[in-house]
């Protein structure tokens, strides 16, 4: 089966499940590139960090586009697991993609209430 290059774009803080979806494709021998747009990062639980590391182990990469990659998601050596990519670079990289998946909902325009902000 041909290995496909798949970009999964996450624009909304509630839809970082796109990373798990990317991992699902990586274990099916595809190249997964989940991209978190404009700092809509998840909470970096052990589960989430392990998934991000696993995507990288499977020759994919989780990217941050439009925000500094967080230093709360690191490997055992303390190096950041999420790489930074500019919007321009992302566009150029995606020209070569087999699939581009804008995942879930667009970015919210209002601030989340305390009940779901963390």
């Amino acid at each position: 089966m041909e290995s496909l290059k798949v970009y999964i774009l996450v624009a909304n803080r509630m839809y970082n499940d796109g990373i798990r979806s990317g991992l699902g494709l990586a274990v099916e021998n595809h190249y997964a590139f989940p991209v978190i747009m404009n700092g809509e990062f998840p909470s970096f639980s052990t589960y989430m960090s392990e998934n991000i590391a696993w995507v990288k182990d499977m020759e994919g990469q989780v990217y941050s586009c439009g925000a500094v990659a967080p230093d709360t998601c690191v490997d055992e050596e303390g190096d950041k697991l999420i790489a930074e990519i500019s919007l321009q670079e992302l566009g150029e990289a995606m020209r070569d993609a087999d699939f581009i998946i804008p995942y879930g909902l667009p970015k919210q325009t209002n601030e989340p209430p305390p009940a779901c902000a963390e």
Binding site: A11, M37, N38, G66, L87, Q88, G91, M94, R95, I100
Partner: peptide, 14 residues
């Protein structure tokens, strides 16, 4: 939905 500036930029490149 209505494309924002990021989407418009990416579409332009694609």
């Amino acid at each position: 939905s209505e494309p924002n500036n990021d989407v418009k930029t990416l579409v332009g490149i694609l």
